[in-house]
């Protein structure tokens, strides 16, 4: 079984986000970029499936700007076998919407015929939480979202999902799309020898046009603003003072 893992290049988890002065978006020029943290978990899970003999090949795919190559090299260094880069934008500030990403991924799935797609549940930039579900819809496949446990048993997979009240376990028909939540695993760090080896692994370059997918956005960005700042608070000196202040504020 092949496993396809979509990975996204996003602003690094630790970088302070700055809104551009013209309100068109968030400033991404000369900012540290990394693989979306949830996608790292997906890559890790795919590699573990291969190590457990349940998958034969792990293919990482990224859709976006040319620089997403680096993200794919990270996936290859972690242990993915090969990578596909689909160039869909020239400007690092252009975010490809989940619907367009899902359409391109559906074409990649048609070509590669994976038995499983493992994706992050959400990208930490646009926070949409949509690509996996959309891909599943377009393919007419089952979906197991927000997974904290994945257990493939022949034609079915048992997925434990993180839901509002606790955990839900479902059984889905294979092939399926699983979107991963943070407790599924702890992604490994790529070792230096593996980083070197990753440079020699195959990385195919395509464009959105190769797949005949129109990536023009359906959501027009009217403006982007900093959220309203909270008024400065006060530091209290003791628990007693805290209790007094809370009572004055009518909070308790």
């Amino acid at each position: 079984m092949k496993v396809l893992v979509p990975v996204k290049r996003v602003i690094d988890y630790n970088v302070k986000v700055r809104v551009k002065a013209d309100g068109s978006g968030v400033d991404l020029a000369n900012v540290k970029m990394s693989m979306n943290p949830f996608d790292e978990i997906a890559v890790e899970e795919a590699i573990r499936l291969k190590e457990a003999g349940k998958a034969d090949e792990v293919i990482a795919v990224s859709i976006g700007v040319k620089q997403s190559q680096e993200t794919l090299r990270t996936a290859l260094a972690m242990g993915a076998d090969r990578a596909i880069l689909v160039i869909a934008a020239d400007d690092v500030h252009q975010d490809i919407e989940p619907l367009a990403v899902a359409k391109i991924l559906a074409k990649v799935v048609e070509e590669e015929q994976p038995g499983l797609v493992l994706a992050g549940k959400q990208a930490i930039d646009n926070d949409m939480n949509a690509t996996g579900q959309m891909l599943s819809a377009l393919l007419g496949w089952s979906q197991g979202t927000f997974a904290s446990e994945v257990d493939i048993e022949g034609d079915n997979a048992k997925i434990t999902r993180e839901v509002d009240g606790g955990l839900q376990t479902i059984s889905v028909k294979m092939p399926t799309i699983v979107t991963v939540d943070l407790r599924l695993n702890e992604p490994r760090y790529a070792s230096l020898p593996n980083i070197m080896k990753a440079k020699k692994k195959p990385l195919d370059e395509k464009t959105a046009a190769d797949y005949g997918v129109d990536v023009s956005p359906r959501l027009e960005v009217v403006k982007t603003e900093e959220p309203a700042a909270r008024a400065a608070g006060i530091i209290v000196g003791s628990v007693d003072e805290l209790v007094t202040k809370l009572k004055e504020a009518g909070a308790v």
């Binding site: 986000v17 978006g25 968030v26 930490i124 359906r218 959501l219 027009e220 009217v222 982007t224 603003e225």
Partner: peptide, 19 residues
């Protein structure tokens, strides 16, 4: 037209759906 938080709420984006 809707407002939604992006980047963990570090920015609020106003988007207009053309669908």
């Amino acid at each position: 037209t809707f407002e939604r938080p992006i980047y963990a709420g570090n920015a609020i984006q106003t988007v207009k759906s053309n669908d």
